[in-house]
Design a protein around this nucleic acid. Structure first.
Lengths: 160, 160
DNA sequence: TGGTAACAGTTACATCTGAAACTATCAAGC
DNA sequence: GCTTGATAGTTTCAGATGTAACTGTTACCA
């Protein structure tokens, strides 16, 4: 609202602080980083690895391609994250019987255990964040995000 | 709401799709990337460079440290972005007379011109995005973001 | 059947990034 | 004045990333 001395005080009263793309990236990075502490400390997982773990935990058996579609991660990112989870013995890959280019990926018992360990942390994080924002603000935020995601055709909202 | 076949159908009904940190990062990256097309195509600027340009455009003369504080960018990121803008002749640095560790940075005429060229694009982007979301959803989103930023003590809201 | 284009997934390379080390300066106490 | 610890900014190094090239396979159509 109030303006500090601008370089040239024409009508260029643009402020980065209030610019939506900038605000979104900044706050998203902050929130995401905070939660990342959980899986980093506990398991040394990177964000792509955590996303793959969570996606496999949710869907059961899927291919790398499907992980990529679902998580909006680049296929090389998925490839490397899956390779790392494989190295840990958290998943196993089986060649798809119908398409030998693809692999069907499934969490092993160890992988499922890690996933089940993480779920309560994720839920607690979200609950606590909602609580600090307050019911009303949280609802507004989610509703705004919904709309934004729909505009960008992200997130397969069941209604649509 | 509706659940697909879960790996093990205990109570682990966690879905990444609806997890706030993930949703935020994904949509933020999408929005930011879309706007980044503008300064990338037009000037070949990186995101850190654009942020420095915008911050200098807004504040006039400041130090790298202040750019870092204002944009939430790591000091090495600022250092490299400023170096690049300097290489282009878009800014000049003068040793601070009171503290010779610091440099006072100001946009040159060329830098100010680039900034002034960019401002309308930024404003158009935001206007258009608000329009596609609708007045109501946009307001909710902004209000939710406000609250979130306040919780993380980002964004110097005048009240605080 | 053979040829071509599309596709799943991996790898190579060039770029970007943050942590930590480094340089030069400042501030404070002695 | 001198020592010590903090600070502004740069550089180094190791790790993460995306683009593009690559491998093997599939689909399609002549």
């Amino acid at each position: 609202m109030d303006q500090r001395t601008n370089a040239d005080d024409r009508d260029t009263a643009f402020t980065l602080e209030t610019f939506l793309p900038y605000r979104l990236v900044r706050i998203a990075e902050r929130v995401s980083r905070e939660f990342a502490e959980n899986y980093r400390e506990k398991y040394g997982l990177s964000r792509p690895e955590w996303r793959c773990l969570a996606t496999l935990g949710q869907f059961g058996t899927i291919t790398s391609k499907e992980i990529g579609e679902s998580t909006a991660m680049h296929k090389t990112k998925v490839s490397r994250a899956v390779a790392e989870l494989d190295r840990r013995g958290w998943l196993k890959r089986r060649p798809d019987s119908h398409d030998r280019r693809a692999e069907q990926i499934t969490l092993t018992a160890a992988g499922r255990k890690a996933f089940r360990d993480m779920v309560p942390l994720a839920e607690a994080f979200e609950t606590s964040l909602h609580a600090s924002l307050g019911r009303n603000a949280a609802a507004q935020l989610l509703s705004g995000l919904d709309r934004l995601e729909r505009h960008y055709r992200l997130a397969p909202h069941d209604h649509e």
